[in-house]
Amino acid sequence: MTTETILTNARLVLEDRIVSGSLVFKDGLISEIAEGKSANGVDMDGDYIIPGLVELHTDHLESHYSPRPGVRWNAISAIQSHDAQIASSGITTVFDCLRLGSDADDGFVVGEMRAIADALAEARSENRLRADHLIHLRCEVSAADVLEHFADFQTDGQVRLASLMDHAPGQRQFQTMEQYTLYYKTKRGLSDEAFAHFVTRRQDSSARYSDKHRRFLAGACAERGITIASHDDATLDHVEEAAGFGVKLAEFPTSIEAAQASHKAGMSVLMGAPNVVRGGSHSGNIAATDLARAGVLDVLSSDYIPFSLIHAPFVLADEIEHLDLPAAIRLVTATPAKTVGLDDRGSLSSGKRADLVRVRRESGVPVVRSVWRQGERVA
């Protein structure tokens, strides 16, 4: 016989309201939501129960695999370290970003990202992972070798999302040289001469490759049913181009106009949860809270701080009058799941996966107390 689990005396965060009651799950699925206490349940002591978080964009695995410039860590060890931090942050579904496209000064060589994807598959087959890991390919369309990198993933079913990016100076995220200089020259300690050479090479590469690579990759992803994301859209022309490619996710738009147009066109607008927690963008672009106030923020991503994904919704619910906690939690659960076609998770409702997080939050930073993935306790 299948054993069912009852969580009771909980504040259940549904998509549109909070219910004080009980949740029942068995066989990895939610079977019942009920108001009131159950005499047979595990007492949640009034804590919140929310759906497991769905993370669409995190570079965090890369920082474990390459913790220092030129250093490469054992892939399985890096994955397990990353996975533990992901799960303990309440994330039960994670799209691990793998960076495709490099030049002489940056990125990974052809084959490295393929090896990480193979290690992910191996870790999954050996039951090493707490969260459900899928792959997000971050495709640098201005790189000469991005299609060679992409060819490594022609038949990989782990790939469910791909973003089309151009980080050349004057493009999208870096429309001003002031931002670009800070991000590349200052942080890398380049001389004026070396930086000028770096900028020229990047601009020439963008002019030569970006358009044709963007078109090829958008077509290839559409054929395979891979959700396509735009990245750092800044203008209405960028948004119109993205809509033409069938983009479903607009990552980190850099202007309010681009965010509004993307939202109006039916794309899910994604911003960084660290942006919310810090109160602004680290690169000087628009604040996620401004988009939330304008009603055009749809998805949050932890980007580089996994725990920010559970922290940011509470900040938004505190600070924005028209955004209650259920609406804020949708930004990290139901909406990202729907955007990438994962209709089996993302909400507390009968028949959905029992991906659950127990959260205590009296004030300030929330505490993740327990995490279940498909009914199995993983943290």
Score class of each variant (00 low, 15 high):
residue 13 V to T: 02
residue 14 L to R: 11
residue 14 L to V: 01
residue 16 D to F: 12
residue 21 G to M: 04
residue 26 K to A: 12
residue 28 G to C: 03
residue 32 E to V: 00
residue 36 G to E: 06
residue 44 M to H: 05
residue 50 I to Q: 11
residue 56 L to E: 11
residue 60 H to D: 06
residue 60 H to M: 06
residue 64 H to Y: 13
residue 69 P to W: 06
residue 72 R to D: 03
residue 74 N to H: 11
residue 76 I to S: 06
residue 77 S to A: 15
residue 79 I to E: 05
residue 79 I to M: 02
residue 80 Q to E: 14
residue 82 H to P: 04
residue 85 Q to I: 14
residue 90 G to E: 02
residue 93 T to I: 06
residue 96 D to M: 01
residue 97 C to V: 10
residue 98 L to F: 14
residue 106 D to S: 14
residue 120 L to E: 09
residue 120 L to Y: 12
residue 121 A to F: 01
residue 122 E to G: 10
residue 127 N to K: 12
residue 128 R to D: 15
residue 128 R to K: 14
residue 130 R to E: 09
residue 130 R to N: 08
residue 141 V to E: 00
residue 142 S to R: 01
residue 149 H to T: 09
residue 150 F to M: 07
residue 151 A to Q: 07
residue 154 Q to I: 11
residue 154 Q to P: 00
residue 159 V to C: 05
residue 160 R to C: 08
residue 163 S to C: 04
residue 167 H to T: 05
residue 167 H to W: 02
residue 176 T to W: 01
residue 177 M to Y: 15
residue 184 Y to F: 15
residue 188 R to Y: 15
residue 190 L to K: 03
residue 192 D to T: 11
residue 197 H to V: 08
residue 214 R to G: 02
residue 223 E to H: 07
residue 225 G to T: 07
residue 225 G to C: 11
residue 228 I to G: 02
residue 230 S to H: 07
residue 230 S to P: 04
residue 235 T to S: 15
residue 236 L to C: 13
residue 238 H to R: 05
residue 240 E to Q: 12
residue 243 A to Q: 07
residue 244 G to A: 05
residue 251 E to P: 01
residue 261 A to R: 06
residue 263 H to D: 05
residue 267 M to F: 06
residue 268 S to H: 06
residue 276 V to P: 01
residue 281 S to A: 10
residue 287 A to R: 11
residue 288 A to I: 12
residue 292 A to T: 04
residue 298 D to Q: 02
residue 302 S to C: 14
residue 303 D to S: 01
residue 306 P to L: 15
residue 306 P to T: 10
residue 312 A to G: 12
residue 312 A to W: 03
residue 315 V to T: 15
residue 319 E to D: 14
residue 324 D to I: 09
residue 326 P to C: 07
residue 327 A to I: 02
residue 327 A to C: 08
residue 332 V to E: 13
residue 335 T to V: 13
residue 337 A to Y: 03
residue 338 K to Q: 14
residue 340 V to W: 03
residue 341 G to D: 12
residue 343 D to R: 01
residue 347 S to P: 03
residue 359 V to E: 01
residue 359 V to P: 00
residue 360 R to L: 09
residue 363 S to Y: 13
residue 369 R to F: 04
residue 374 Q to N: 08
residue 376 E to W: 04
residue 377 R to M: 07
residue 378 V to Y: 10
